[in-house]
Design a protein around this nucleic acid. Structure first.
Length: 566
RNA sequence: CGGGGCGUAGCUCAGCUUGGUAGAGCGCUUGCUUCGGGAGCAAGAGGUCGCAGGUUCGAAUCCUGUCGCCCCGACCA
């Protein structure tokens, strides 16, 4: 590619609306242009990157035996009503009507469509297992799109769906996809982690996320140092702890005027946060109230709580007025001693003795409270977020947190959708059975941003070779004045093209400074400078984007190819 | 959805408080000089100040509405 014929719209100025580095760099380097909130145009240079990511994903899916399809972006409402998700998806789903007034949505995901398609075409166990995939545009009306293409409303996703006769075969394909995903992320050239995950409103049982590790990541990952456990914090489990020590202090009611939060009470009474039990009042599954007891320094995990059989799903906090009526005290002075509603204690809260808690009396707390003697719970459960320093739930290692950007997610869905949508096939005995289903997603457009979050420096993007828009950029110095430079650059450009190298020639006639600045901003992995100085000794100047300094190499195409192969 | 902020040239912004004929830098065009880290000089092009009402002799500026965009929050006892 000749840059004189290729639109490079780089800018020195920071775009006003970009908060994270990948968004800033993608805009400054001219990879994307914003059309509206969460809506982006991929400019020619950006599309090159996107298509390279797509190609890697496509190759690995094909290698894993999945079959490419292309499904419509617009779906009839009936399909979503069948699965029950027409209501569940809520405002995140963009809905529209056609000229006849019929309801449609812009597909946020394609389980419904693929199950519908499969139930029409697949009738025999002989046709299973099968794994369909597509690389296609999705639309999710995010409550808050941000960070450019990292959380956009319209985005490119690879989604795959597999169908199986047995749970075991689903588990086998899940492992097959897991291996394919590891290959994909490895080929992208990024540091990543596969972590256990919550399956969200997609549903199903086993699920893992693939995260690109980056400080700007929206997800918090709990990774066992010295162990193998890794999970999204929202899904990381915590285990029961040994029972509390015997009571060592008497239950004492103390005046704590105006001290409502755990932090305030902790400071006021000079006890550590971890020595306090806080009570959260939520709606029970049968409408009444239930209290959740947590250690003062722990946070409720709403996903875990929402899944608890005694608690309303999704988790719903009690109305403060109702709490006042039932407890006779304000939120802020609640505790398990004399609690008027059933208490479910988090494992960690249940393991402490002589704790501080609200007295269910405004402006008062108890000290020296103990389970059994002073307070009771109906059940212990895992209801909190794991924290750094916790022992790994599998017993090996200690939890440390990382930030990650979710680039892929794989699920074993089971029969949730196949059952809801009446998809059956005949087995060997002629009986109709409901197949098992898995689904596997990669956020293709998000990955472009995620890679930049991890691979950049002060000058710009540092693309891994595998997804760079060009592998090598030739910068001729003063080619207007020096026929020798121009000739050498043109010759090398032609030779590299002939050798199949994705090479760009900066023939815009720019001065060196702006050529170098652009090369670094757009992140080309290899740069070759041709100038009269070097040519005098038959040399080119080669620099790898991430290297500290340039080096001189012989002015031959062979020497350049050798550097690219290194 | 709740709260806050911002819409002025392609981009980044000033001007608004205290109404009086539209500004800067970058970018762009042309010319000359320059040419190994985003060059200099000169001359240009480019905006119905988001949109709609209102107040006023007069509105980018004041008022109302509306649309768009950005940020924060919606994990709390």
């Amino acid at each position: 590619m000749r840059l004189s014929r290729f639109p490079l719209a780089t800018t020195k100025e920071m775009p006003a609306d970009a908060q994270v580095i990948s968004h800033q760099l993608m805009q400054r380097a001219g990879y994307i242009r914003k059309l509206g909130a969460g809506l982006y145009t991929w400019m020619p240079i950006g599309l090159k990157v996107l298509q390279k990511i797509e190609a890697i994903v496509r190759e690995e899916m094909n290698r894993a035996g999945a079959l490419e399809t292309l499904m419509p972006a617009i779906h009839p409402a009936e399909l979503w009503q069948e699965s029950g998700r027409w209501e569940i998806m809520g405002a995140e789903m963009l809905r529209l009507k056609d000229r006849h007034g019929a309801d449609f949505c812009y597909g946020p995901t394609h389980e419904e469509v693929i199950v519908h398609t499969a139930r029409q075409d697949i009738r025999s166990y002989k046709q299973l297992p099968i794994n369909y995939y597509q690389i296609q545009t999705k639309f999710r009306d995010e409550r808050r799109p941000r960070f450019g293409v990292m959380r956009a409303r319209e985005f490119i996703m690879k989604d795959a769906y597999s169908f199986h006769m047995t749970q075991e075969d689903l588990a086998r394909e899940y492992e097959n996809m897991r291996a394919a995903y590891i290959r994909i992320f490895t080929r992208l050239g990024v540091d990543f982690r596969a972590v256990q995950a919550d399956s969200g409103n997609i549903g199903g049982s086993a699920s893992e996320e693939f995260h690109v590790l980056a400080g700007a990541g929206e997800d918090l990952l709990a990774v066992a140092e010295g162990g193998s456990y890794a999970a999204n914090v929202e899904a990381a489990i915590t285990k029961p702890l040994p029972p509390p020590a015997a009571p060592g202090a008497a239950l004492t009611k103390v005046s704590t005027p105006g001290q409502k939060t755990c932090e305030q009470v902790s400071k006021f009474l000079n006890v550590p946060l971890s020595g306090k039990v806080k009570l959260l009042v939520v709606k029970g599954v049968e409408g009444g109230l239930v209290a959740i007891a947590l250690r003062g320094d722990h946070q409720l995990n709403e996903i875990k709580a929402g899944k608890h059989p005694k608690l309303a799903s999704p988790l719903t906090m009690a109305d403060p007025a109702e709490v006042q009526r039932v407890f006779g005290a304000e939120v802020g002075y609640l505790g398990p001693v004399g609690c008027p509603v059933p208490v479910i204690a988090d494992h960690a809260a249940a393991a402490i003795a002589d704790f501080v808690c609200g007295a269910n009396d405004n402006d008062h707390h108890y000290t020296g409270a103990n389970w059994g003697r002073d307070a009771s719970y109906v059940e212990q459960a895992d209801l909190r977020n794991i924290v750094e320093g916790d022992a790994s739930p599998d017993g090996v290692g200690t939890i440390k947190f990382y930030r990650g950007i979710e680039g892929g997610h794989i699920f074993q869905l089971g029969r949730k959708y196949t059952q809801a949508m009446g998809f059956t096939v005949l087995d060997e005995t002629g009986a109709a059975v409901t197949p098992y289903m898995g689904c596997y997603g990669v956020g293709v457009s998000r990955l472009a941003a995620a890679v930049i979050e991890q691979k950049h420096d002060a000058a710009g993007i540092v693309w891994p070779d595998a997804i760079a828009p060009f592998r090598l950029l030739i910068c001729p110095i003063g080619s207007d004045k020096s026929p020798a430079v121009k000739e050498a650059a043109e010759k090398l450009y032609a030779e590299l093209l002939a050798a199949g190298v994705e090479v760009a020639l900066d023939d815009r006639g720019q001065r060196p400074g702006s050529m170098f600045a652009d090369a670094e901003l757009i992140g080309i992995p290899h740069r070759l400078v041709i100038g009269d100085k070097g040519l005098a000794t038959q040399q080119f100047e080669y620099k790898q984007r991430s290297a500290a300094a340039a080096e001189m190499i012989p002015a031959t195409v062979e020497a350049v190819l050798a550097k690219l192969a290194a």
